[in-house]
């Protein structure tokens, strides 16, 4: 998944810990093999290659994930969208060279025609999906780590691990059980390793944190700095200085919400529909809280 995975399991016998970690690593690798659009043989690659021409039948895991994403799309007023990839490509956020100049409004509109989960045609009878517009693409990049964390949580609980912290590249964190010294784990949110000033602290226990911001993946075009999240509704990237962090009981929802909150004008209205809390930090480090119930 292009990042590192840390699993901290205090007070676990080392051999057992190694076995649990191996199970986790295997599951993460399996999921990546299915969900990565960079893998030629992944399920996502197959969908992207075939769903424009004909319905692609999904297995239970893929059907569950895609329909869940569609539901999150609706509940976030369209701000979370797994079909946003063509816009990310237009802006050069997918490894291609960034454009020399800002894409024109006409270019953005043209690409936006190929974006939107409402343009996916689901057939519940055959558990199949089809693109209603040519050139659509699916990318689970904004939610894949959340799904992996949910699977990791199952492995941890089935392995009898009562207390653990799982960190997927700092942006996706899962905490299982209490801190070894009791109570929630205090997890700070900061802009980067290089700037570790804590801007907000979450009290986490049996919850997931997802953070999103441009510090590590921003780009500059024509002198303007853009964050790597593109609003699927407008086709325009966010301010690179904005950092969003969400605490939720569901890791997948935390992922979807951290992306959605980055582009939403009224985050509180959306967060109200979830068992989640959020903070947004602007480029001047001013923190706005949404539904935060407990501050450490």
């Amino acid at each position: 998944m292009g990042t590192r995975l840390d699993v901290v399991m205090p007070d676990v016998e080392p051999a057992h810990g190694r076995a649990v970690f191996q199970s986790i690593a295997d599951e993460v690798a399996r999921l990546e093999g299915r969900l990565s659009r960079f893998r030629r043989t992944s399920f996502v690659t197959r969908i992207n290659l075939e769903a424009g021409d004909r319905p692609v039948r999904l297995d239970e895991e893929m059907w569950s994930l895609l329909t869940r994403c569609a539901e999150l799309h609706r509940r976030t007023s369209g701000a979370f969208d797994v079909t946003v990839l063509p816009l990310l490509q237009l802006w050069g956020f997918t490894g291609e060279h960034p454009p020399d100049k800002r894409p024109s409004a006409a270019e953005i509109l043209s690409v936006r025609d190929r974006v939107g989960m409402e343009k996916l045609i689901f057939d519940a009878t055959s558990a199949a999906v089809r693109f209603s517009v040519d050139g659509m693409k699916i990318d689970f990049g904004a939610v894949g780590k959340g799904l992996a964390l949910e699977r990791v949580e199952v492995i941890l609980r089935e392995s009898g691990i009562a207390s653990a912290l799982v960190n997927f590249g700092d942006s996706s964190i899962l905490v299982v059980g209490p801190h070894p010294l009791g109570g929630p784990w205090p997890i700070g949110v900061r802009r980067s390793d290089e700037d570790p000033t804590v801007l907000h602290t979450w009290a986490t226990m049996d919850t997931a944190i997802s953070s999103s911001g441009g510090a590590n993946q921003s780009m500059t075009i024509d002198g303007s700095s853009y964050g790597h999240v593109v609003d699927p509704r407008t086709g325009v990237p966010t301010d690179a200085g904005v950092l969003v962090s969400v605490l939720a009981t569901s890791a997948v929802e935390a992922e979807a919400l951290s992306t959605a909150l980055t582009v939403l004008d009224s985050p509180a209205d959306v967060l109200r529909n979830f068992d989640a809390q959020g903070v947004a930090v602007d480029r001047d480090d001013r923190v706005s809280s949404y539904g935060v119930r407990r501050v450490v």
Partner: peptide, 10 residues
């Protein structure tokens, strides 16, 4: 507090 949460480490 552990300053862990933040943008994705790539």
């Amino acid at each position: 507090t552990v300053p862990l949460g933040g943008p994705s480490w790539v």
